[in-house]
Structures are given as C-alpha cells and as structure tokens.
Nucleic acid binder design. Structure first.
Lengths: 173, 173
DNA sequence: GTCTATATTCTGATAGAC
DNA sequence: GTCTATCAGAATATAGAC
C-alpha cells in the first residue's frame, strides 16, 4: 500500500538530483522531464516556468528543514553531533534538497539565498540554545558547511567527519 | 609604466568574475567577451573552445596556489590563522579563481575537481607540517571551507571568522 | 494530466574580412 | 588579433490534440 509518488513530486526529485549531480546547466527542463519519465509538456503543466519549479523546490525544502530542526532538538547524541553527522551527504531527501538549493543560490537567485539563510539561522539557533556559546556554535556550523562543501565539490575525505568529532571532544563536548 | 593587462588575461578575469557573481549559466562566451570588452570571435581566437577557456583558468589557479602556499608557510601569524583569514573572500585574484573553479567542479568537470583537490591537499600539508596534529589541521580546513562556502552562497556572517579564531585560541593556538 | 509539434531565443562554434 | 556574419543545436515556453 505504498502511496505512489506523484508525477509532480518525481519531477521535483529529478530536478534536485540533476542539480546535485551535474549542476545547474545540466538541469534543463527537458533533462528533468526525461529523468522523471515524463515529457517537457507534462512538466510545464505542473510548473508553468522554471522559476515556478525552483519555487516549489524551496517550499519543499522549508518543510524538510522544519522537521530536521525538531529532530536535531531532541537528538540523543546532542544537537552538535547530530548536526555534524547529518552534514555529510547521506543521500537523504533533505540533503539533496539542500545541496540543490545551494546550487541555485549560487546563481544569484534571491529566493534561494534567503531560504538557505533561514534554514541555517534555525540550525544555529538550536546549536546556540543547547551550547550557550556563540563562537562554539558558529565553529560547529562552519565545520558542517565545510563537510557539505566538500561532499559537493566532488572530493570527499572520509576522515574529515572523524576529525570534526575529535575536535568537538577537545572542546569539551 | 603599469603593464597593460592582455586581452587574454582580461578574458580569463571576466570568465572568473561572471562565474563567481552569477554562476555557470551566466558565464556564456558572449557574456564573458562583452564583460572583457571584446567580441565572441575575439575570445575564440584565444580559446578555441569553452573547455580550453576552463583549462586556461585552471592553469592560472595552479600558479596562484603555489605562490599562496609559500606565503602561508612563512606567514608571521602562523599558517592556521593565515589560512582562516584568507578563507573569507577578500576579492583577491586568487579567491576569485578558486571560487570560480569550485563552480566548474560542481558541474562534474574532472579537471576542475582534480585541481581543487590538489590545492586543498597542499594547504592541508602545510597545516599538518606546522601543527603535527591531523584532526586539528582538518578541522581548520573545514572551517575555512565553511567560510568560503558562505561567502559564496550570498550569505556572509561577519562574526563567523571571529568565532573561528576564538575556537583556535581555545584549542591552544 | 500528459503528450507532440512548433515558435523563439540563446549558445557554442566556424568562416572570412580587416 | 580582433571583428562581423552566420549556422546548427539546445533551451524555455506556447498551442492544441488526446
């Protein structure tokens, strides 16, 4: 009884997947439609313009993010460790949406930059609530950003996450 | 007696500038040529294909990087502080080349990923030589990556660099 | 809701004049 | 070395059939 994923959702999934794997130039309407097993016309029924496609992606990201912030708040390992662990791309829907949005933000699309900024502010707020130490909270977020950045650039160093955790320990966490 | 910047160099500068400010989609041959005050035909005399343009950018980046690694080695404030300080985009030619290359690397262009990877490996080697502490060296590099990533996504938090330095202090640096 | 066909504009690249 | 003119193919978007 698994609910079928709607065409609309599959189109958004495909848009994100192409953005993450091959960047913005590769995420054409035709490529997105083909990846989702649909036609360009079919895509344009759901999203009248490319901007609408981007907007729908940002809406989904905000939903994902709200849920993640809640998980982070109650994570047994603590928000800091939770944050670092989930900063290395696990292939989750949320990671994909986040990296895809970063790609769009880099093209100077204000709505994408603002959404990313809001998500990052929520994370930082939880880190700060928990740690009550602004420099520490920001340093943890920077390391998380670094982990993402590297996953995203085609170079992963599996040791990096381990090192980040080791440094947390040294800082009293 | 300032030497005039050659058309070839101005074209590479413009390519990098457009990549950094508006992303890969905006860095078309026509846009690059116009930004450099030249024509598409003029550009294609110097670089026969777009791949050649990218290759020339990577060559320049490697030259910049070799010089930067030397500066880092002898920096009076030490390699770690030098690295963090130069990880927030100062608008230098080197920063521009580095961020521009990250944009291309995200499009799954192997030559760009490999060049970035080599530059990062050189930095990490200097950090490790100086600190003799792998997790610490990697954590510093992660924070530097995080600073770059944020500069690059349209969101700068001026406090982030200060926090990173504060954490270095706490870690005994 | 989804498809095919088509219009329009953009992009990378060639040819050849100056 | 640099430009203009031009072409083939790709990208976004529209119209209308099913």
């Amino acid at each position: 009884m698994t609910a079928e994923r709607s065409t609309r959702d599959r189109l958004l999934d495909s848009f994100e997947t192409l953005l993450v794997s091959d960047g913005s130039r590769a995420a054409t309407l035709e490529a997105v439609a083909a990846h989702a097993g649909a036609s360009k016309g079919g895509l344009l029924y759901h999203f009248h313009t490319k901007d609408e496609l981007i907007g729908a992606m940002l809406d989904r990201l905000r939903d994902h993010a709200a849920a993640d912030v809640e998980r982070m708040r109650v994570a047994p390992e603590g928000p800091a460790a939770y944050y670092l662990n989930t900063s290395v791309d696990s292939g989750s829907d949320f990671d994909r949406a986040l990296i895809a949005t970063a790609r769009i933000a880099q093209e100077n699309v204000d709505a994408a930059s603002e959404t990313l900024d809001a998500v990052r502010a929520d994370w930082l707020a939880v880190l700060f609530e928990h740690l009550n130490d602004r420099p520490l909270a920001q340093a943890i977020q920077l390391m998380g950003d670094g982990l993402y950045f590297n996953d995203t650039t085609g170079n992963q160093d599996p040791q990096a996450l381990t090192s980040a955790h080791e440094i947390l320990k040294r800082l009293g966490l």
